[in-house]
Design a protein around this nucleic acid. Structure first.
Lengths: 210, 210
DNA sequence: TAGATTGTTAATCGATTAACAATC
DNA sequence: TAGATTGTTAATCGATTAACAATC
């Protein structure tokens, strides 16, 4: 029952285990089955599961689907909802706001901003304010996580406002390198890299190596 | 002048080098500058650049911005445009179709499909067909790369049609594990993992470790 | 008990970092 | 030549794989 940290590599595989387990009907599941479906090795799966699960597998039988699901969700931090703000509600931003899955992932987008909006509007149940209200609104709501889905030209400006407002973690979908102070972290959603990986694969072949 | 392979880790960093270099004005750039901006080490940068560049850096001065840009684009396969089909033109799909950057990344989305469409329509200059035309149209256009931006429930069905149509590489944005034959590869765009990484970081701190 | 599958220890592999010589 | 920065070799670190003993 290891309490603390598991590797980033493990962390990245967890959502796949979760997705697979949720699609599964039988209560017993073995590392071999998981490995085969995901293109990993049995041992890798067992090590990952050992690292995050409270209840051990039973030799000769496998793991309990339901407790694995529970443990993976805990490890991924689902349940503790982080509140987030999003800047740029064009197609990509709207997609994220409307994305059902995102709530399950532990994120709740509570407010949006857009340069094209001149007074408060709504996307589903999420309020959207003009871009120049970013600092005020975020400060008031005390939000620490910001999502950037504006275009390349405006990304750094938005980022600066986020930082000024007290945002500490930024999920960046714009193809730019953002400059931030040391205490703010940026997670770049790297579409270009994924694509490069794919087109390399188109020539070589391979499977899951996120 | 190494001709063949560089690691996947290197590949993933290349788009960031490229973005940084394109924002840069001076023709000389050192590994130290790059490393500082991206939160990497100098040596790491130098090794990456050595792995992909045709022209070496010059000691005491640095690298040539313009030839680095050229070499990175070659390494990433930009220029050789891959033609792609996309299934699901909701918000996310439309965002991808309209995403200017994507062309620079070496991808051209030439056709879309959607279950909600009953006859041929258009998004900008991209034709969109009803979902039941997937196999016919893709076969006719001889496309090998498919993008899935439908919801979880329809993802596997679309995937099966793609495979039937001869698609060999799939870029999967749905939160599902797709079952495909061995000769088809899947690149999962793993939003859940990114998020988990972010919220872990929210507690610990860190930088670029895609 | 026999069969299956787990968990763990040791070996391997690959990527990062440290140290330093080469060179513009 | 002196200073700066590159490229490379060796050391370290971390993650994956192989081998096998433990156990339901």
């Amino acid at each position: 029952m290891p309490i603390l940290p598991f590797s980033i590599q493990t962390l990245k595989r967890l959502p796949f285990y979760l997705s697979l387990l949720e699609d599964q009907s039988s209560e017993d599941v073995t590392s071999g089955e998981i490995a085969r479906t995901l293109g990993l090795t049995e041992v890798q799966v067992r090590k990952d599961l050992a690292a995050i699960s409270q209840t051990a597998g039973t030799p000769g039988r496998g793991f309990s689907r339901s407790s694995l699901i529970r443990d993976i969700k805990i490890a991924l931090g689902y349940g503790q909802l982080d509140e987030a703000a999003i800047a740029g509600v064009g197609h990509l931003g709207t997609a994220l706001v409307n994305f059902d899955g995102i709530k399950q992932y532990g994120l709740r987008i509570v407010v949006g901003f857009d340069i094209k909006v001149s007074k408060k509007t709504w996307i589903s149940e999420t309020p959207v304010y003009p871009a120049h209200d970013i600092v005020d609104v975020i400060r008031r709501l005390n939000i620490r996580l910001g999502i950037i889905t504006v275009n390349r030209e405006n990304a750094q400006t938005v980022c600066d406002s986020f930082v000024e407002a007290g945002i500490k973690a930024i999920w960046n979908f714009s193809p730019t390198i953002l400059r931030v102070p040391d205490d703010v972290i940026v997670q770049n959603e790297n579409l270009a890299a994924s694509l490069a990986l794919l087109s390399r694969h188109l020539k070589a072949g391979g499977h899951l190596d996120t």
